[in-house]
């Protein structure tokens, strides 16, 4: 890992988040997201890591009563994606997401990947064909499905479904990709393939991943953030946080004293 390239792709500035029931789930989070790096969010359940991740594509807007306070600024255009004037749809077009459980649409493999393009008004079959192939190759799934693109996505295995969801998120050339515990529903072999895929995707885009699995954070990420009860306790290079954590709470979590 080199010290030189520290281009900030996005950063959260004093971000607070309140759920509709009044719960103060994020407390003044300041954190950068470096370009072409994988940043992992770790912490015990309920610490706000998924809440934080879901701020980046304004998923909280889908449910009434949720409130953001603070900024998430994207570079190089300096857009505060949480601002009232910014359409969440625009944000989701730039930042895509892979969910905890594979959630393909009950459509064909092809249509799953093509959906993001169709939403953007894509009609040209040749262009869509190319994009679908590219995305499926990018998600290391092309060879397994190229002969049955019109099969239902549900007929794929769990790991294949998750790679299909990655392809779906990839097809629209996002700048940032969010992963919300992407392997928690998968077996170890499928998990390994997803992790490998993430490290490859890093060359093309910036990744933010929530994981409950510390080994996974250590394996795949360049930077790690430890969150606890809505606070960002510590953020630094993954090697540093696992070898010499600065905060006592981080150390306790990493060594298994709190879980």
């Amino acid at each position: 890992m080199d010290q030189v390239s520290h281009v900030t792709k996005a950063e959260s500035r004093n971000l607070n988040f309140y759920y509709s029931n009044g719960a103060h789930a994020l407390k003044g989070i300041n954190m950068p997201l470096y370009e072409n790096k994988i940043t992992a969010l770790i912490g015990p359940s309920g610490c706000g890591k998924s809440t934080f991740l879901r701020c980046f594509n304004r998923m909280h807007d889908l449910y009434p009563g949720n409130r953001y306070d603070g900024q998430i600024v994207m570079h190089p255009d300096n857009t505060n994606i949480l601002a009232d004037g910014v359409d969440p749809i625009e944000v989701r077009m730039r930042i895509s997401m892979v969910f905890q459980k594979p959630n393909p649409f009950p459509k064909s493999i092809y249509e799953n990947v093509a959906y993001g393009l169709r939403v953007r008004g894509g009609k040209n079959k040749k262009v869509i064909d190319d994009k679908v192939e590219q995305a499926l190759r990018g998600a290391a799934l092309w060879d397994e499905v190229k002969d049955r693109l019109n099969d239902l996505a549900f007929n794929l295995s769990g790991g294949q479904q998750q790679r299909l969801c990655i392809a779906r998120a990839l097809a629209t050339d996002p700048e940032i990709m969010l992963f919300d515990e992407p392997t928690s529903a998968l077996d170890p072999i499928a998990t390994a393939s997803i992790e490998e895929l993430m490290t490859e995707l890093r060359n093309k885009l910036t990744i933010l991943v929530v994981t409950h699995n510390m080994q996974q954070a250590a394996r795949v990420s360049d930077y790690t953030a430890y969150m606890y009860l809505g606070d960002l306790v510590e953020f630094s290079k993954t090697d540093d946080i696992f070898i010499k954590p600065k905060d006592k709470r981080t150390e306790d979590y990493i060594t298994g004293r709190i879980g």
């Binding site: 998923m59 889908l62 959630n103 649409f105 959906y115 939403v119 953007r120 629209t172």
Partner: peptide, 21 residues
């Protein structure tokens, strides 16, 4: 399921696109 709806919104669909598709 909410997960299917979220998947559609996450790729940038509008409400009407989610409803229709």
């Amino acid at each position: 399921p909410a997960s299917i709806r979220e998947a559609a919104y996450a790729v940038g669909a509008t409400k009407w696109q989610v409803v229709k598709d």
